[in-house]
Structure formats: structure tokens, C-alpha cells
């Protein structure tokens, strides 16, 4: 599948945004939110800014962005519509939460709204993941890894942002760095498990089945319908060299999860905590964008079978 930059930016930015909002909400719900007046508000503002950035960029993917408002209507059947509804619900919840935290730090309202913030933020990430997980023609997406993986990456990227914010505004606190390290380890394990799973998958169908013959018949493409690339091949026939894929996987794993894991552990030991968390975040941004690029580039679509491609 063609990795469209607008979608890579959308899913990565909203992962950071909703992850951060979920952590702030969770800390508040558990009564652990730091009392510093600006901490919660800064976090909420940063989260909403990143979410708006991602959602804004995603509009560029649309052929008719002037009609984007129409995408809220089909939430009963469409995960894309549900994602939109969820994202829009996060805003009032986050703003009310910010107001409550400002007025009564850790009052009942703050705690309840914090819990609501966790639910709406993670539900939106889940909807994003289900857009991909529900697509039957793409075996690398339509599996039981996709949805939990998106949630794990969002929780991980949010934990990194939360740790950086905490270190920058309040000072060293080993716990937030340890949480970031733990989520990085979980994300690393999840990504490896995902690759293990998709590498072992068998093709969804054979070319013979695609043309209505018994599936084990030996069929070869003879003449293509057209000599140049068309929309289907550009969008769904995207393929990367296995060699490049392996290299990019190492980059995604090392920069995306390995480096943040090591740096967060350093920070938790109060070795250059601010620099370590900041570098961890920078690595995670590059690594997660690479990971998301691979998520698309390595995904194959059954329709490419008709053109004799391997799926």
C-alpha cells in the first residue's frame, strides 16, 4: 500500500496527542496529577495542538477537503467516521478537564473528567486502528495485532511526551521515566511480534482464485490491460525491496523503541534527565514515522494479484 505522508503524519501525531491526553487523564483519575498549576493545562494544550496538527494534515489526503464535515455521518458502519467523531469528542472533554483541574485540582469532577479523557482518547486511537484492521483485502492489517499495536504505540508515545513535560516543568521524577521505559519495551515486543506474525502469513489468495479457477491452478499473467501504471497499481501495488525493508525495520526498532527505552532508563537514574528524555522523544518521532511508513509499504493488497504481483 502506498504510504501517503498525510496519513503517516496523522496517525503518528494523533498517537502522541491522544497518548499524552490519556496519561494526563489517567494521572488525574488516580489522583496523582502534579499540583503545579500549569502542568495539566500545558499538557492539555500540547495534546490538543498535536491532535489538531494531525487532523489538519489528514485533510490534505482528501480529494475534496471542503466536504470533510460529511465524514461524521456514518459512524454506525464506518471506522473512519467513528475516528472523526471520537477525535471531535476529545476536545470538549479535554477542555472541561483542563477547567476542572484549574478550579479544583483533583476534585471529583477532575477525576471523572480525567477518566473520560482516557476513554475518549484511547477510543479514538482504537477507531484509527480499526480503519486498517477492518480491511479484509490486506492481510498485514486485517489481523489481531493491528488494534492493540496502535494502542500500545499511542500509550508509549504519550508516556514519552508526559515524561519530557514532567522533567521540564517539575523536575526529575523517576516514575514517569520508568513508565516511559516500560511502554517502550512493550512497544518493542509488540512490533517484533507483529513482524513475526506477518512474515509467517500465507498469501490471502492465489491468482487462480482471483480469476475464478480452482485455487491451485497454475496461472501466469499474459497481457496486462494497460501498459502504464493506473490508480490501482499506484495505490495498491506499492512494493519495497526486501533488503530496504530489513534495514528500515532495524531503524524503526532501534530509533523508535530501543533508543527511547535506553534513554528513559538513563533519565530515571537522573543521568542528564532533560537531555535524555528530549533525545528519546526525537528518536521516537523518527522511529515511529519509519514504523508507520513500513506499516503501509509492507502491506499488500489482494487486488494487485490481478497484475501478477505477489500479495
Amino acid at each position: 500500500m502506498k504510504p501517503a505522508s498525510s496519513i503517516l503524519l496523522l496517525t503518528t501525531a494523533t498517537g502522541f496527542a491522544f497518548g499524552l491526553l490519556a496519561w494526563i487523564g489517567a494521572y488525574a483519575a488516580l489522583g496523582l496529577l502534579p499540583a503545579e498549576a500549569h502542568f495539566a493545562l500545558t499538557g492539555i494544550a500540547l495534546g490538543l495542538f498535536l491532535a489538531s496538527l494531525g487532523l489538519g494534515v489528514s485533510l490534505l489526503h482528501l480529494g475534496r477537503m471542503d466536504r470533510a464535515w460529511r465524514s461524521f455521518s456514518q459512524w454506525r458502519s464506518s471506522w473512519l467516521s467513528r475516528e472523526g467523531v471520537g477525535a471531535v469528542l476529545v476536545y470538549p472533554v479535554a477542555i472541561l478537564f483542563g477547567a476542572a483541574a484549574r478550579l479544583h485540582h483533583l476534585g471529583l469532577a477532575t477525576r471523572l473528567l480525567g477518566a473520560a479523557l482516557v476513554v475518549t482518547s484511547l477510543a479514538t486511537v482504537f477507531c484509527t486502528a480499526m480503519i486498517y484492521a477492518s480491511l479484509k483485502p490486506i492481510r498485514q492489517w486485517h489481523n489481531s495485532h493491528t488494534a492493540p499495536d496502535y494502542l500500545i504505540y499511542a500509550v508509549f508515545s504519550g508516556a514519552l511526551l508526559f515524561a519530557l513535560l514532567h522533567t521540564a516543568m517539575i523536575g526529575r521524577a523517576g516514575a514517569t521515566d520508568l513508565i516511559a521505559a516500560a511502554t517502550a519495551a512493550a512497544a518493542l515486543v509488540a512490533k517484533r511480534a507483529y513482524w513475526h506474525h506477518v512474515d509467517a502469513q500465507t498469501p490471502l489468495a492465489s491468482l487462480a482464485a482471483a480469476i475464478g479457477l480452482p485455487k491451485d491452478k497454475d496461472v501466469k499473467p499474459l497481457d496486462a490491460p494497460h501498459f502504464t501504471e493506473n490508480y490501482v497499481l499506484r495505490e495498491m501495488g506499492f512494493a519495497i525491496a526486501r533488503r530496504h525493508g530489513a534495514k528500515l525495520r532495524r531503524i524503526a526498532l532501534g530509533l523508535g523503541f530501543g533508543a527511547p527505552l535506553a534513554l528513559s532508563l538513563l533519565a530515571s537514574l537522573s543521568i542528564l534527565p532533560l537531555a535524555a528524555t528530549a533525545v528519546a522523544l526525537a528518536c521516537a518521532v523518527i522511529g515511529l514515522l519509519t514504523e508507520r511508513w513500513l506499516f503501509f509499504a509492507e502491506a499488500t493488497h489482494v487486488a494487485a494479484l490481478y497484475y501478477g504481483r505477489r500479495v
Binding site: M1, H61, L62, G63, R64, M65, R67, A68, R70, S71, S78, L80, I131, L135, K136, P137, I138, A205, N230, Y231, V232, E235, M236, H301, V302, A303, A304, Y306
Partner: peptide, 27 residues
Amino acid sequence: EICIGCKLCSWACPYGAREFDEEAGVM
């Protein structure tokens, strides 16, 4: 008149039957 050109429907079709109209921005 309603399509926003998100292309998701073309991803959902295993037969590659939908093609995007780059000029009108719709499927």
C-alpha cells in the same frame, strides 16, 4: 456530490474495481 475522496472504499475492494478521479477529487 457527497464523496470526500478519502479513497478508503478502494482499499476495501479486493477486486481493484474503484478508480480515483484526480480531477474531480472523488472516487
